[in-house]
Amino acid sequence: MAFRDLIDEVDDTVFDVLGDRALIDGREVQGMFSAPWLQPKLGRIATALREPHLVIRVKDNAGVETRQRVEVDLPEEDGGGAYTITNIEPSGDGLVALVLRKAV
């Protein structure tokens, strides 16, 4: 088994078990949602990323474009709700970060 195949199987398991459900223009994907302003206040974490973001796999990124609507299926207190994609940032490791802005 090739290394990429092995990592793809690991990602399938991790995203299925730990991922957050989201709809991108009505298409369901599993991703890892983060809203930095909701993170626990333990110590100081220096990060340049302040916008909410949804990390998805490259294979789920086909057809994703800026200005598309994303619905994150989480309680509002955890940052769930409607967002607009403002930027798409591939990381080179099989994942893509979708930078989001709260939809009005």
Results as ranks from 00 to 15, higher is better:
residue 1 M to R: 06
residue 1 M to Y: 05
residue 5 D to F: 09
residue 6 L to W: 12
residue 8 D to N: 14
residue 9 E to N: 12
residue 13 T to R: 13
residue 13 T to Q: 10
residue 13 T to Y: 12
residue 13 T to C: 05
residue 14 V to I: 15
residue 15 F to R: 05
residue 17 V to R: 15
residue 17 V to D: 10
residue 18 L to A: 15
residue 18 L to Q: 15
residue 19 G to W: 09
residue 19 G to M: 06
residue 20 D to M: 06
residue 20 D to C: 08
residue 20 D to E: 14
residue 23 L to T: 07
residue 29 V to H: 02
residue 31 G to F: 08
residue 32 M to N: 12
residue 34 S to R: 15
residue 36 P to G: 10
residue 38 L to T: 14
residue 43 G to Y: 11
residue 46 A to S: 13
residue 47 T to L: 07
residue 52 P to R: 06
residue 52 P to G: 11
residue 54 L to I: 06
residue 55 V to N: 03
residue 56 I to W: 02
residue 57 R to Y: 06
residue 57 R to M: 14
residue 60 D to M: 07
residue 60 D to Y: 04
residue 60 D to F: 04
residue 60 D to H: 14
residue 60 D to K: 07
residue 62 A to P: 00
residue 63 G to I: 09
residue 65 E to P: 00
residue 66 T to H: 04
residue 66 T to I: 14
residue 67 R to T: 08
residue 68 Q to P: 06
residue 69 R to P: 00
residue 70 V to W: 06
residue 72 V to G: 03
residue 72 V to F: 04
residue 72 V to C: 04
residue 73 D to N: 13
residue 75 P to C: 05
residue 76 E to N: 09
residue 77 E to S: 14
residue 79 G to D: 03
residue 82 A to K: 14
residue 82 A to C: 09
residue 83 Y to I: 01
residue 84 T to E: 11
residue 85 I to K: 01
residue 85 I to C: 04
residue 87 N to W: 05
residue 88 I to W: 03
residue 88 I to S: 02
residue 92 G to N: 07
residue 92 G to M: 05
residue 93 D to Y: 09
residue 93 D to T: 15
residue 96 V to R: 00
residue 96 V to M: 03
residue 96 V to C: 01
residue 97 A to D: 08
residue 97 A to H: 10
residue 98 L to S: 05
residue 98 L to C: 02
residue 99 V to S: 02
residue 99 V to E: 07
residue 102 K to I: 09
residue 103 A to S: 11
